[in-house]
Amino acid sequence: MQQENSVEKKLKERIRDVFDDLELVIGYCQSKIPLKVNPLFIQRKEEIDDLIFDNLCINNLATYSYFLSNELKGKIGIVLKPCDTRSITQLISEELLNKDRVKSIVVGCAGILDYKKIVKEIGGLKIISADIKDEHIRIDTIDENFTLEAKNFYADKCYTCNIYDNPPYYDEFIENDSKLNIEPRKEYEDLDEFEKLSLEEINSFWDLQFSNCIRCYACRNICPLEVCRDKCIAQLDVPHWQSQKINSAEGKFFQLIRAFHLAGRCTECGECERVCPANIQLLKLMKKINKDVLKLFNYRPGFNLDEKPPLLTFKNVEKNIKEEELI
């Protein structure tokens, strides 16, 4: 059991204060698996003690907001990182979520560790035990021990984050004494290399990536914005859009459907990439599309409650699309 940090204490206190108005609070709790945390659904006040908040809390709990707000009658409290609030904002702006049904309890963030990056660094070995102390991650596998510097293993989004202590949207905000302390990178910097590739190279890159897709739909179901879970055209019988076969062609087809569904809506939380059992670089595709949307429509998903996503509406004349030049 790790020692309770100050932000955890403040978080619990705040949740105790507001708990009576809420039917359920979603937060994080310890997991038995090293370097992972679990979502926690709090229905009774004494369960608040199980709450944690540290740099392993990578899950975007906004995922549960849409389905739970449909299932339950009361108000739901959700513990969010500042970046996760973008998903909530986006859902509200698309009228998929009623603002009054959700209480966003936002905690200032000091960066979160990316499990997959760590596992990759240690060569895919299974982690038997691990602990984090003073910005160092110590890991035991069956034969080897590793000590890694935490600052190299934060999630990609942390390196470009500028909202970690000033969330764009919140109902409750709990400040974190520890601050994000990493060398910032330029937004979409990681796409530079990729964009230099030729069309053939890009095609073969994605073909290889999507050939691993087993169509488990984890990416779709974990996504806070893909509320289509049980109505997805990739699984629909009537009309019959897509074969149910599991192979590279169908995998690619499904992933492209996903990408288009999220074009200009994706809040880049990275959950899809985190959960993919086949390690497909899903976020790269989303980022590329989002970058294009930003260029064309000057729109960044998840920051504005009142603005409609550009691809859900249209203007007679789009400033940055020169249709006449396209013909």
Partner: peptide, 25 residues
């Protein structure tokens, strides 16, 4: 209560060595 966090994806099923339900199309 115990299944609340499940997102009903197939990750567990498709890595499971015994799960063999199939579809025909």
């Amino acid at each position: 209560n115990i299944t609340r966090k499940c997102i009903s994806c197939a990750a567990c099923t498709y890595v499971c060595p015994t799960c063999v339900c199939f579809n025909i199309g």
